[in-house]
Write a protein that binds this DNA or RNA. Sequence first.
DNA 1: ATTATCTATAGATCTATAGATAATGC
DNA 2: ATTATCTATAGATCTATAGATAATGC
Lengths: 213, 213
Amino acid sequence: MSEKQEAAQGKNIPTEVKDNDLVARRRRQIVDAAVHLFIRKGFHKTTTREIAKAAGFSIGTLYEYVTSKEDVLYLVCQAIHSEMEQRLTARLRHGINGARDLEAAIAVYFTVCDQMSDHILLIYQETKSLPAESRRFVLEHEVRITGVFKELLARGVSDFSLRPLSPPEIELVAHNIMVVGHMWAFRRWALAESFNLEQYIELQSDYLLGELT
Amino acid sequence: MSEKQEAAQGKNIPTEVKDNDLVARRRRQIVDAAVHLFIRKGFHKTTTREIAKAAGFSIGTLYEYVTSKEDVLYLVCQAIHSEMEQRLTARLRHGINGARDLEAAIAVYFTVCDQMSDHILLIYQETKSLPAESRRFVLEHEVRITGVFKELLARGVSDFSLRPLSPPEIELVAHNIMVVGHMWAFRRWALAESFNLEQYIELQSDYLLGELT
DNA sequence: ATTATCTATAGATCTATAGATAATGC
DNA sequence: ATTATCTATAGATCTATAGATAATGC
């Protein structure tokens, strides 16, 4: 943790540019531009020229800040996961018991999934386009977010607001919560015919938590 | 239903070739070749030449049977869904009550998901690369498979082996079953550390059905 | 002098088709 | 004659980089 907010994890992408602040700023521009293009056209149909143009500089400059188009995809995936993680953890509360906190966290998380549907879809669709090493980092980030729910479940078990759960059960339920959130993103086309977000949260919480008390 | 087993749905892809049996045969070759290439390299990184070569004929011949590369993807997606639907419905039983039949169907379905993991992943990743019309047909196919579980749930409700469920609840639970099956495909990298397929089926069935009795 | 940015393009593809060839049946 | 297949390639890209230019600080 040498720097004020070291990335703490993640791949180092080489750059010729010396000014670290500038690198961070330009990469943020690249990510902002690329996210929208990738969502709209997909990774492979977006050209590096389009990314550069949308970011506000030339193709040559783009390649001073990344070494390949895949680097851009990696930056995009990490930015999306960071954003999700931050929005989720920012609203976690340590309240009366684990079960209540878990229920609240699920509601927060599903709301984030609702807001970031397109981004979640992008990760499902394009993770396989990443080089092996980058993909590993992206999956690790997914694991870390799942860990938030594992901790909440463990806390509920230890304060007896949830029934006893084995580690594998905790693992499974945490993944179920994650996937049911994502599901609101990738099955919206079917689910939105029967539910709005509130109803979805309400019902799915019942199903997810019903077995745990 | 003019022909013996009319596709019953699906897009008509034009061809210059008159012999219908030959068209069916060649398209089967195309699909078999393309599935494996798409799984390994992804749709965009697979070239039409590679598909033609793996299918055993030339690029010129390929284009006698499809009008575009996207047609090949559409044929692949439909073939995968058909295969899944068939493997599932072939093993459905009408037994003592709906709840038991549902439980058995879930086990069958999850086993199919296990066997066809790569294919399920492919659909998640590449559906967005389809033209709008083709994509609609593919999603319809997904709806039809979900319908299998909706029917089983409705039967369980009507024979009182399940508690009363509103139509939206039936919709939701059917989608949950579908997605939890897919989840075994797209989260295998995490789940397989804690479970084998049998254990996964056992536990998830408990969670899925526990709330329904 | 050093750093950041831009222009121009090398080099490598890839899809889809036109026109030639081979095979089949009258 | 008709049908199916093949070869060769037009035409259109797209990524990544080399070398030129502009901006900044000594």
